[in-house]
Amino acid sequence: MAKSYYDPADLRKFGKITEWSEELGNKFFDYYGKVFEEGALSAREKSLIALAVSHVVKCPYCIDAYTKDGLQRGITKEEMMEAVHAGAAIESGATLVHGVQMMNKYDKLSM
């Protein structure tokens, strides 16, 4: 067994998940492929969204994949970092907005 939970080489093997469940695996990859096609949003914009989400869900495979995807699309490092901040801002905002719940509870419990 691998000595760590994440192995970069596993990313290339992603497609193998279909081997243990062909129908669901194929449905997922069809869906995935379709999502990232040009649409109302450009493939470039979707690549940046994917990069931001990759950070929020803290997926090292996805971060590798969408950093490379961004480079291939000519996306600059400034654009990439802004996308990461957009994700981080929502994530920290989601934490902080719970501060209101804390304040409500505090006030309710206090005389």
């Binding site: 493939a43 470039r44 490379k68 699309r73």
Partner: peptide, 9 residues
């Protein structure tokens, strides 16, 4: 890394 779509570039 590989080049992206030529027309987009």
């Amino acid at each position: 890394f590989l080049p992206g779509d030529q027309a987009a570039m």
